[in-house]
Design a binder for these strands. Structure first.
Length: 446
RNA sequence: GACCCCAUCGUCUAGCCCGGUCAGGACACAAGAUUUUCAUUCUUGUAGCGCGGGUUCAAAUCCCGCUGGGGUCGCCA
């Protein structure tokens, strides 16, 4: 049976690279009807924080990556110490103060990697180097091999040691992790061999690089999964984007749900080369998901953002909000963009786009706006269609082309040069606010 | 520096394993159509097998070298 694991360390938030590793593990497990283990590697007592652990679990759930088992390494310290003692008793390891180290023997290590094929290491290269970078020699004038730390000086177990014990005892069939762990693998295999454990298969995922091809780092802006949530990305869209980094469903399909993905996911078809992260494409995918989301659901998703931005409070017109969402849905790449588009609906003080104001409101519109106000006033059923009729009547009376009045009206009402169908906006604002805004546009003119 | 990994449009990728399809799709970009604007949608276009050797009738595909990029060299994980 396929059994895989994701093993984050709670020394920071779940970042995008970790999420991708988790996702591929998850897809592999679900595609093979196997098990997915979540293991919290909290052996570093100083740096591990409960809040990070909670955040990681929260992000995993948000992404929809459920797990079958949850383990904490901090609960297994006795096990690791017993294992280390056993190796000491067998003469394979030795004590150095409180620490316990595994003697490194000369060995050719073969790794079978499901993604990369065979990878070879010679432990003769694991030499101890002095301050000057030169290789240190042992009593026989041979290069001294670097022994592997099993238990650290403070009595806590070392990463490679717990990792091996857990992967073996949890019966992980394939270790799926980032490429940055390739060089840990031979060290771990030495430990598998010393302990007499069965060596699992490995699959080293290509790394995700920043947009410019360099290493991912905080300066990239959004690294934590929670950042993407805050910026208004949908979990399904993020997951969709991430799965396309290093893998393809193979049928020219770009919009792929997790359910569809696990139908033809194969760990062997994962790409070997590192991939550069593209915010543009993520935004496009997110926009696709937003368009697919039904307005009712989308409205629910937007409410927390609207509350946080003080656009709405406890009692708001849910039906009204839905119709606003319907109007802007098609032009959203992220949830937060809704806030930028609709500020003029939720706030009466308009933020004018300077360019738009200059272009459309700098000349005297009093004649046009006054007539428009009169005609809007007479509209009984103030909906988009009636408003459009009133507008057409106005341009007819003025003897001008609609285009000449459409843009000034839009800027006067919204402060922006662009937006959805103007008459939908007029209707949403309502008669009173429309007239109010036209009046204040007249005032600023004079 | 040592060891290891990798290399198809600007970016993500299909194709590579089992050589022979104008190297396919998507984002971005450009042009056009639709639209009162923006966006959406649709159509079209620009753009790629890093280089050099082999093997072969034939190489993106197999082999070698080079170059380039990346990772690791902690009693962090």
């Amino acid at each position: 049976m396929v059994k895989v694991r994701f093993a984050p360390s709670p020394t920071g938030f779940l970042h995008i690279g970790g999420a991708r590793t988790a996702l591929f593990n998850w897809m592999y497990a679900r595609a093979q009807n196997g098990k997915f283990v979540l293991r919290i590697e909290d052996t570093d007592q100083q740096r591990s924080k409960k809040e990070y652990e909670e955040e990681i679990l929260r992000s995993m759930k948000w992404l929809g990556l459920d797990w079958d088992e949850l383990h904490y390494q901090s609960h297994r310290f006795d096990l690791y110490r017993d294992m280390a003692q056993k190796l000491v008793d067998e003469g394979k390891a030795y004590k150095d103060g409180e620490a316990i180290l595994l003697k490194t023997l000369k060995d050719d290590i073969k790794i079978y990697d499901l993604i990369r094929g065979e990878i070879n290491f010679d432990t003769s290269n694991f030499v101890v180097r002095g301050e000057d970078g030169g290789v240190e020699l042992d009593e026989h004038n041979q290069p001294k091999l670097k022994d592997e730390v099993l238990i650290k000086g403070d009595g806590s177990p070392d990463y490679n040691f717990c990792c091996v014990i857990d992967d073996a005892l949890m019966e992980i069939s394939c270790v799926v992790r980032g490429e940055d762990h390739i060089s840990n693998t031979p060290k771990q295999i030495l430990i598998y061999k010393a302990l007499g454990f069965k060596i699992p298969k490995f699959a080293h995922l290509p790394l995700i690089m920043a947009e410019d091809g360099t290493r991912m780092s905080k300066r990239m802006g959004a690294v934590a999964v929670s950042d993407y949530k805050e910026q208004g990305f949908l979990p399904d869209a993020l997951v969709n984007y991430l799965m396309l980094l290093g893998w393809s469903p193979g049928n020219n399909q770009e919009i792929v749900t997790l359910q569809q993905a696990i139908k033809n996911f194969s760990i062997k078809k994962v790409n070997k080369a590192a991939a550069a992260f593209s915010m543009e494409k993520l935004r496009w995918i997110n926009g696709q998901y937003i368009k697919q989301t039904d307005t009712e659901k989308l409205t629910e998703l937007l409410i927390p953002f609207l509350e946080k931005a003080n656009y709405i409070n406890q009692d708001f017109d849910r039906q009204g909000l839905k119709s606003i969402v319907e109007l802007f849905k098609v032009r959203l790449s992220t949830l937060t963009e809704f806030l930028e588009w609709t500020d003029f609906i939720f706030h009466d003080k308009l933020q004018f786009d300077p360019e738009a104001k200059e272009k459309h409101l700098s000349q005297d519109r009093s004649k046009e706006f006054n007539l428009l106000i009169n005609n809007f006033k007479q509209v009984e059923n103030y909906d988009a269609i009636s408003c459009e009729e009133a507008f057409k009547k106005t341009v007819g009376e003025l003897g001008i082309k609609p285009g000449e009045l459409v843009h000034p009206l839009r800027v006067a009402l919204t402060g922006k040069a662009m937006g959805p169908s103007l008459f939908d906006i007029v209707a949403i604002l309502g008669k009173e606010r429309t007239i109010e805004r036209l009046n204040s546009a007249l005032k600023t003119d004079s």
